[in-house]
Nucleic acid binder design. Structure first.
Lengths: 334, 334
DNA sequence: CTGAAAGCGCTTACAG
DNA sequence: CTGAAAGCGCTTACAG
């Protein structure tokens, strides 16, 4: 037996309509009426039941966050990136409007259909999705008729319900590589994990452009492993081929390269130049500290969330494509 | 206009009661009936509306996860610990039962009341809470009449709806310190952040016990800062006082000490011994790698979630107090 | 197994 | 502003 509008109405001596109006901020009522309702509600410990409200308004006040994780189940553990995004999403949701966050992690491609079902069942109001997904899933998302904001997704196609927030990955690749060139390094490698993905391709393109301008040769190292492990293994290949600098497409790869190089007594920042991408905290915790491309992850998450909120509040329309600037943060590794 | 039980019933040629029974797995129906219902539902794209179901069953199939964060808003970003917990919670929820996860982060003490309201509004079925909270909030949680499983909470008191999952923190403190003693270090410091908290006190007690057995003197360093920053600053104090080893109550502090020491050209693992607590991944990513107390964080989250699920399924009762074992993982820093 | 009926707690027109 | 009424989509007895 929970406390409902009926009890509050009785206690406050008003109609349930008025109670409803006060709590939803709709309709008209005097200040005294509002106070009476609020006092009664407080006295009885009344909280509107969101499920009941959801049933009639067809709004759940729930935002779904979709995280990809094809490698293993430990998405958050292995990717500081996602943590920052979650923090930023949460900080906006908490401050700007009353929406709760519900997480849908996608560990295997086979689960995509299931995720789609979960979204329907919860009647989620809007979706935030990070990364790349296959076309069928995107088509499915788009067909749900709710706004979707994609972070770091480069898919093309006609998705009327999508908006996009990306970073200027190509410029990042260019800046990182150019920095190494300016520092005097000659044999500059690109190191990354699954470079075939569209996002990594952008960073790769930036690398190419900088090398081309300088007339340098490409050395590309790609591996399908956890970023840190891949980096460790790259360090063997890099020394074997007498490469003297590496631009890594993500910081965790750079941390792996750093670890491997230090183990070989290579003097990082002098005999070997290292630049990462992401500018996550671990880059400042390792020693020597990592030079990196800052992609303002927190702001990216904030921007995406605010975009979604604006669409939900009908203050803007769908279809925007934002590209956030990047910058180089020079530290000790190059 | 969404597809409801009525449409499915009509399509399958059965009653809505039967459709409901099939989807909830209750009542009796033949295999043919079930197939007919499922076929019709699939054809129409029917998904049960959880809000409607919730309204009548008074179950939301939602688990609330409460994370504390008094320092700043970036809970997840700064604490790899929480990420592992979230991954583990999610992995159990996904595999064992259909529950969705809804996150309630508590950035400021003033927001605790608000969190309480959110829990009520969403009619959450059960709660997972990490860390310490003030007594009023705990009392409030307990009064909600839903099961609560606390991780790393040492509060005493009569909370009928609580269950606890902890690690053997005292033993961890003992093992870490004893290891340094056995390695021949003489002046062994304890370094931590906000050591007055009950959890850190346990680790401190273990440190004390080991020192006492060896007849060594205590050197305690406590600071209220982010763990890494505190560690960096400890490194100055440690060298100034010619301490030759440190047991840190959390890995991130140890990483800070390590960074500071390396910057001073101290040979870690030889001239200075360093042991952390948590055994998070960063301990294997820094060089030299960190010796640490493994507190099986992932298993702790799994255990807590499974405990909650069992209580919800009435397969066990409330009030259990589990203490998970810890062990020392020797690496390079001591 | 079925079908009609009641009801979960709320919001939404609508006539006053 | 109020109050009676309908209805969101589901589940739950209950009589058959």
């Amino acid at each position: 037996m929970s406390i409902t509008v009926i009890h509050v109405a009785k206690e406050a001596g008003v109609s349930r309509t008025t109670v409803s109006n006060v709590f939803s901020g709709k309709g008209k009522y005097s200040d005294e009426t509002r106070d009476a309702v609020l006092t009664a509600a407080k006295k009885l410990g009344y909280k509107p039941n969101l499920a009941a409200r959801s049933l009639i308004t067809n709004q759940s006040r729930l935002i779904g966050l979709i995280l990809p994780s094809y490698v293993d189940t430990n998405t958050l553990t292995n990717s500081p990136f996602y943590n920052i995004i979650m923090d930023s999403v949460y900080s906006v949701l908490r401050d700007e409007a009353y929406y709760d966050l519900i997480i849908f992690s996608v560990p295997y491609k086979e689960k995509l259909l299931q995720v789609s079902g979960w979204i329907d069942a919860r009647n989620v109001d809007g979706i935030l999705a990070i990364g790349e997904y296959d076309q069928n899933f995107l088509k499915d998302l788009n067909s749900k008729d709710i706004p979707v904001v994609l972070i770091d997704n480069y898919s093309r196609g006609n998705y009327a319900n999508f908006s996009y927030v990306n970073s200027d990955d190509e410029t990042g690749g260019y800046l990182g590589t150019q920095y190494l060139i300016n520092k005097g390094y000659k044999k500059i490698a690109l190191c990354g994990v699954e470079l075939t993905g569209p996002l990594m391709q952008k960073r790769y393109e930036g690398y190419k452009r900088a090398l081309k301008e300088a007339g340098y040769k490409e050395y590309v190292f790609d591996k399908s492993d956890t970023p840190f492990e891949a980096g460790m293994q790259f360090s063997d290949l890099l020394t074997a081929q007498q490469i003297d600098a590496a631009f890594c497409t993500e910081d965790m790869v750079a941390v792996g390269v750093l670890h491997g190089m230090l183990r070989k007594n290579v003097r990082i920042g002098r005999d070997f130049g290292l630049v990462g991408f992401d500018n996550i905290y671990i880059g400042q915790q390792v020693f020597p500290e990592l030079t990196s491309i800052d992609q303002t992850i927190f702001e990216k998450g904030e921007t995406a969330t605010k975009t979604l909120l604006k669409i939900l509040q009908k203050k803007t329309s769908l279809g925007s494509r934002l590209i956030l600037p990047v910058s180089l943060v020079a530290r000790e590794s190059a």
